[in-house]
Simulated assay, not measured.
Amino acid sequence: MFNFGDLGNMMKMLKDMQENIKTAKEELKNEEIIVEVGGGMVKVIENGLGEILDIQIDKSLLNEENAEVLKDLLISALNEANVRSKEVMSEKMAKASGLPSNIPGLGNLF
């Protein structure tokens, strides 16, 4: 026989998990991940959801001679910020859902 009491408990657990995930997403949105490269010449600020909030570039890089260096620094900073935000997202979502954080792609599930 099917036990409807267990179903009720499971539904409550799922509802709690949804609320925890919603809260974690809000926290991620407000989290700032700051990456500096090139000795601080390029700074990228990204939130925990992977959205770029700001890019700061030292004025000395803003000339034609430094265009290639600037491009390389931007790519490096954006890639590092992306990796960090995915790590933060995976940790928060694992905590919110009660699932292990080492499940590949967990951050993409939410």
Rank of each mutant, 00 (worst) to 15 (best):
Val83Asp: 13
Lys59Met: 04
Ala24Ile: 04
Gly40Glu: 04
Met13Pro: 00
Ala67Leu: 13
Ile57Leu: 06
Lys71Glu: 15
Ala81Pro: 06
Val35Glu: 09
Val37Lys: 09
Val35Thr: 11
Gly39Asn: 09
Asp16Phe: 04
Asn47Gly: 06
Val42His: 07
Ser76Phe: 00
Glu32Arg: 12
Leu78Asp: 02
Ala24Leu: 09
Ile21Tyr: 05
Val35Pro: 03
Ala81His: 05
Asp72Ser: 12
Glu65Ile: 12
Ile21Gln: 03
Asn82Thr: 14
Asn63Cys: 09
Ile33Phe: 03
Lys22Leu: 05
Gln18Met: 11
Ala81Met: 06
Lys71His: 13
Asp16Trp: 07
Ile52Phe: 01
Lys25Cys: 10
Leu62Ile: 09
Glu32Ala: 04
Gly39Pro: 03
Gln56Gly: 10
Asn20Leu: 05
Asp58Gly: 09
Leu78His: 08
Asn20Gln: 13
Gln56Val: 07
Leu49Arg: 12
Gln56Cys: 02
Ala77Tyr: 03
Lys25Val: 07
Glu80Cys: 03
Asn30Ala: 12
Ile55Arg: 01
Ser60Leu: 10
Leu53Ala: 04
Ala67Asp: 10
Gln56Tyr: 04
Gly48Ala: 09
Ala81Tyr: 03
Glu68Leu: 14
Glu51Pro: 01
Ser85Cys: 08
Gly38Val: 09
Ala77Asn: 05
Lys59Val: 09
Ile45Asn: 02
Glu26Met: 13
Arg84Ala: 10
Glu64Arg: 13
Glu36Ala: 13
Leu70Pro: 07
Gly50Ser: 08
Val69Leu: 14
Asp58Lys: 08
Arg84His: 05
Leu28His: 06
Asn82Pro: 00
Asn82Gly: 13
Val83Pro: 02
Glu68Gln: 14
Met13Gly: 01
Glu31Ser: 11
Arg84Lys: 15
Ile57Trp: 02
Gln56Asp: 15
Lys29Ala: 14
Val44Met: 06
Arg84Trp: 01
Leu70Tyr: 04
Val83Cys: 00
Ala77Trp: 00
Leu78Ala: 10
Ile75Phe: 05
Met17Asp: 02
Glu65Leu: 09
Asp16Cys: 06
Met41Asn: 11
Met11Asn: 05
Gly40Asn: 05
Ser85Ile: 11
Glu36Cys: 06
Leu73Val: 07
Ile34Leu: 11
Ile21Gly: 00
Glu26Val: 10
Leu78Ile: 15
Gln18Arg: 14
Ala81Gly: 14
Lys25Tyr: 04
Gly48Met: 08
Leu74Tyr: 03
Lys22Asp: 10
Asn66Met: 11
Met13Asn: 11
Glu80Gly: 08
Lys12Tyr: 01
Ile45Phe: 00
Ser76Arg: 10
Asp72Asn: 13
Ser60Ile: 12
Gly40Tyr: 04
Glu80Val: 14
Lys59Cys: 00
Glu46Tyr: 07
Asp58Ile: 03
Lys29Glu: 13
Gly50Lys: 11
Leu61Val: 06
Lys12Cys: 01
Glu32Trp: 01
Leu49Lys: 15
